[in-house]
Design a protein around this nucleic acid. Structure first.
Lengths: 211, 211
DNA sequence: GACTGATGTAGAACGTGTTACAAGTCTAGA
DNA sequence: TCTAGACTTGTAACACGTTCTACATCAGTC
């Protein structure tokens, strides 16, 4: 795998469908097919099974087209992750998180999400490893994922879908919780932690940070 | 890049120099040359510049030999990281860490190490990304790195080279600090944080956790 | 309807991680 | 010293991410 250099790619202009929205209906449809194929292949065989030729074939686009939409395998996978996370955010906006205390609510949302990921270990492995391997050129997509995660945790912290302002201290706490969650997730993906460990490690972090 | 499957490799027995010690003098010497070449290439051009053929050539071993010593590029880079970290641990054993409080001492060691890494951005990029991308087959080397980091922080926490027992709570705190530090490091490597951000994010975590 | 530029297609080609193989070299033990 | 087996070498081959090229298609403009 070759990581993309620091320089931006000298494309002939904006890509046709870099953003989830925009482009013609056919283009949005192609983009969807590509991401669906990515998720499907990843769910079956993990990171290695997401082969660009296979994605192109399953999505019924040419290889060149795939690369026009997503400039690398990492972009592709992180975009897929971003799409999944965005769904979660939308869901969390609908209703208040159950739980008496901030601790309980945060654990509720993180555990729910963790268990959802653990039900599809291969998929999670693919997405998490791509996320961790991403370099500078993927900043946009990475940021999208980070924002989703932050939003969901902030909502859980306050217990209401419309979290007001978060203080600077709260923002710092949320960032730390995210870091711990991601670290735990990657430890789980690579077999260095089991499911109990993940849950416990997050619980301890939340407890220590919210006391 | 192809990640190694879940199954262990069916080697014909133990590798000649998987561990830093053991093997003949010539083998330890080869291992050293290989890791030196790795560090040197990484320092110059980062992850992409560590090409297996180039490493083999610079270390003056055949490609097949390189693979006999390190079964993949990731193993190679994480082993290099482990060697560097081990040096640090040895150094930290020599004398007490300066600083009045645990907070000060922990910040002292982490900042010192962070700044050392930041002086060689390409090298750090290579090592950190390899660490993050590592899969199940690299568990041993990863664990070595984790242990080094934990030891150094534990020593700083207590302020003496011979840290006694760490309580379970302390161990949890140390793990969280490590997670935050690694996350910050990867954010820095990929240009999502600058040096000040890294320092601050760790400072906040340590403050919140040790209060 | 014909032209034009952007987009899509099919497939070859290239680079680098990884594996395979045949032949040379070194080492321990008879 | 001789031999068996492990280790090393040099090189070719393979897989997959990525790039490139030639051609087809489609949308908008005249």
């Amino acid at each position: 795998m070759t990581s993309v250099s620091t320089e931006p790619r000298d494309t002939d202009g904006p890509s046709p469908a870099t953003a989830p929205t925009g482009g013609s209906a056919a283009q949005r449809e192609r983009r969807r097919r590509i991401l669906d194929a990515t998720i499907s292949l990843a769910a079956e065989g993990g990171f290695d099974a997401v082969q660009m030729r296979a994605v192109a074939e399953q999505a019924e686009v040419a290889l060149g087209t795939l690369y026009r939409y997503f400039p690398s395998k990492i972009h592709l996978l992180v975009s897929a992750l971003a799409r999944e996370f965005t769904k979660d955010v939308d869901r969390s906006a609908i209703r208040a998180t159950p739980g008496e205390t901030a601790h309980e609510r945060i654990m509720y949302v993180l555990n729910r999400r963790t268990r959802a990921l653990q039900k599809q270990p291969k998929l999670t492995e693919a997405l998490v490893r791509a996320f961790m391997f991403a370099d500078q050129s993927v900043t946009g997509e990475i940021h999208e994922v980070g924002t989703s995660l932050t939003t969901v945790i902030a909502r859980a912290m306050h217990g209401t879908p419309d979290h007001g302002e978060v203080t600077e201290e709260e923002a710092a706490i949320i960032r730390i919780i995210s870091d711990v969650w991601l670290s735990a997730l990657i430890s789980w993906v690579t077999g260095r932690m089991d499911e109990k460990d993940v849950e416990k490690s997050i619980d301890v972090a939340v407890r220590l940070l919210l006391r």
